[in-house]
Structure formats: structure tokens, C-alpha cells
């Protein structure tokens, strides 16, 4: 055999060898990865929505059955129909819409201010250890302190004005957001930072391309808790700080119901506050969180 043919033959053999390796590897890859087949959207919607809706219907039915069978005093134990009637009345004279609009506006605005303040503060604490050591315990402490405790002080400082309400909301939300971000950054695996350095990232690139995205789940948890604390603090502040130039919110509606001994109205308002909390969670935080976790292969507690 002439030498050229020999070379060509061995090159061809090397080629088939490389092709074999490719096919072999593709086969192994297919064996080792399973294809996820997502459920159709309507199936997921039914799976997610049906159980809680059924539970609510069952609870309402039990409540109504109790009022019909046991016949309790309507001023101490109103039935679901009484509560619905009270809400309808508040709707008709416009108090309900006003209260929902006022509270939501304050809650959302207060939360956004808390995000704007808490995020840079959290970043500063996460990246600068001396500051974290100094301020960390204080922020954790503030998170435990019920922000209602600030209401009397806020009234003395700012009077019965919107500033009082916002102050209390911020004192409730900022520590949660800061803590969430600090915890998120602290939980970034050191190996990822090492990889970033090996890849030649500068300090700024390391922060923006590696650390911050890696800390997003912790930050989001902080935001969720921050929103919960804003909403709670807001209700507390509205109940206690009543009158003056403070607008009419859901807390004020509760307080008015208490003054009028209108238990049906009070229960109705509680349900509205609860429902708003759930709606915000379902419409805003849950989809963001689900997307974030699914993209990272961290399927959270909820399917």
C-alpha cells in the first residue's frame, strides 16, 4: 500500500473514531437527562386555584350553617350574609372604595420607598464587613421590634399626618429588605466567587455578574417579608392614628366599625385586608418567585 493511502486510511479511522465518540456521548447524555413535560396551563391553574377556592366555600357554608342552626346573637356572631350586607353598605356609601384605595396607595408607595432605601443599605452592609458587624445586630433587632411600637413616637414627632403612617411602614419594611439582601449575599457559594475571579472578573464585574444574580432568591424573600411587614404596620398605624390630616384607610374603617360596635363591618373589613394581602402575593410575588426558582432548578415548596 502506498504511504499516502495509509495516511488517508488512518485519518479516516480517526474521523470515524471521533464520530463514534460523538454518538456514544449523545446516547449517554440522553440516558442521563430526563425530559420535563410541563402540564398545560389550565391544568396548573385548576391544580392551584381549585383547592383553596373549595376550602373557602366549605368554610363559608359551615359558618352560615352555624348561624342558621345555633341562632347566636347577630351583634356578637354575625353570619356571612350579615358581613356581606355590611360590606355592601360600606361600598354603597363609598367608604370601602376610599379605604382600599388609600391603604393600597400608602402600602405600595411605602413599600417602594423601603425598597429604594433598603436595597443600597443592604448592599453596603453585605459588601462592607465592618459596617455589617456594627449595624447588623441593630437591624436584626429592629426586625423583631413590632413597628406599632413606633406609632406613639411618630405621632409625637409628626402629628396625625401621612408622615406618621409612612414612618411606621418604613420602620417595619426596611429591616426585612436589608436582612434579606444581606442573607442572600452571604449564601452565595464561595466557589462561584472563585470561578468569577478565575474567569478574570473585576470587583465590579464580580458583583454585577455573579454575586447579585446569585443573591436574588434571598433578596426576593426579603422583599416578600418587607411587603408583609409594610402591610401589617400600615394597618396598625391606621387603627391607632385616627383623625387629623390622616386619610381614611382600611385601618380607619376597622376603628370606625369598633366605635359603632358594628361587628359585621369589622369582620368584613378584616376579610378585605386578608384578601388584598393574598391577591398581592398571588399576582406579584408568587409568579416572580416561581420563575426565579424554576430557572435555577430550585423548585420551591409549592408545585
Amino acid at each position: 500500500m502506498p504511504p499516502e493511502t495509509l495516511v488517508a486510511a488512518s485519518a479516516a479511522a480517526a474521523d470515524t473514531h471521533a464520530d463514534d465518540l460523538r454518538t456514544l456521548e449523545a446516547g449517554l447524555d440522553r440516558l442521563q437527562t430526563d425530559v420535563e413535560r410541563p402540564l398545560p396551563w389550565w391544568r396548573r391553574a385548576i391544580d392551584g386555584v381549585l383547592p383553596p377556592v373549595l376550602l373557602v366555600i366549605v368554610l363559608l357554608a359551615a359558618w352560615q350553617a352555624y348561624t342558621v342552626i345555633a341562632q347566636p346573637r347577630p351583634d356578637l356572631a354575625p353570619g356571612p350574609l350579615d358581613v356581606a350586607a355590611a360590606l355592601g353598605e360600606a361600598w354603597n356609601d363609598g367608604r370601602l372604595q376610599l379605604a382600599v384605595a388609600t391603604s393600597l396607595e400608602r402600602g405600595i408607595l411605602g413599600f417602594l420607598i423601603a425598597v429604594a432605601v433598603g436595597t443600597p443599605l443592604g448592599l453596603l452592609l453585605a459588601e462592607w464587613a465592618p459596617l455589617r458587624r456594627a449595624l447588623g445586630p441593630l437591624i436584626s433587632g429592629l426586625q423583631v421590634l413590632p413597628s406599632v411600637a413606633w406609632v406613639p413616637a411618630a405621632i409625637l414627632w409628626f402629628g396625625l399626618s401621612d408622615a406618621t403612617v409612612y414612618f411606621v411602614v418604613l420602620m417595619g419594611a426596611i429591616p426585612s429588605i436589608v436582612n434579606g439582601l444581606v442573607a442572600g449575599v452571604a449564601q452565595v457559594p464561595p466557589q462561584l466567587r472563585r470561578v468569577g475571579r478565575v474567569l478574570g472578573a473585576s470587583r465590579l464585574e464580580l458583583a454585577t455578574s455573579v454575586v447579585l444574580p446569585a443573591a436574588l432568591p434571598g433578596y426576593l424573600a426579603g422583599l416578600k417579608q418587607g411587603w408583609a411587614f409594610s402591610w401589617r404596620s400600615l394597618m396598625a398605624a391606621e387603627i391607632i392614628a385616627f383623625g387629623g390630616s390622616i386619610g381614611f384607610g382600611l385601618g380607619s374603617l376597622l376603628q370606625q366599625g369598633r366605635d359603632l360596635a358594628d361587628l359585621a363591618g369589622v369582620l368584613g373589613t378584616i376579610l378585605v385586608i386578608l384578601a388584598l394581602g393574598i391577591v398581592i402575593e398571588l399576582l406579584v410575588f408568587a409568579p416572580v418567585e416561581r420563575g426565579l426558582l424554576r430557572r435555577r432548578g430550585l423548585t420551591g415548596g409549592t408545585p
Binding site: L21, E25, D29, Q32, T33, R295, R296, G297
Partner: peptide, 16 residues
């Protein structure tokens, strides 16, 4: 030999 898996995320890939 991973041209087909380019758009997959790490959690969808096997260790190898």
C-alpha cells in the same frame, strides 16, 4: 459535543 444543549440551564444537564 453539546451544541444541542446550548440553551439548557445547568440543572437540566447531567454531571458529565
Amino acid at each position: 459535543n453539546l451544541a444541542d444543549a446550548a440553551e439548557k440551564r445547568p440543572h437540566e444537564l447531567s454531571g458529565g
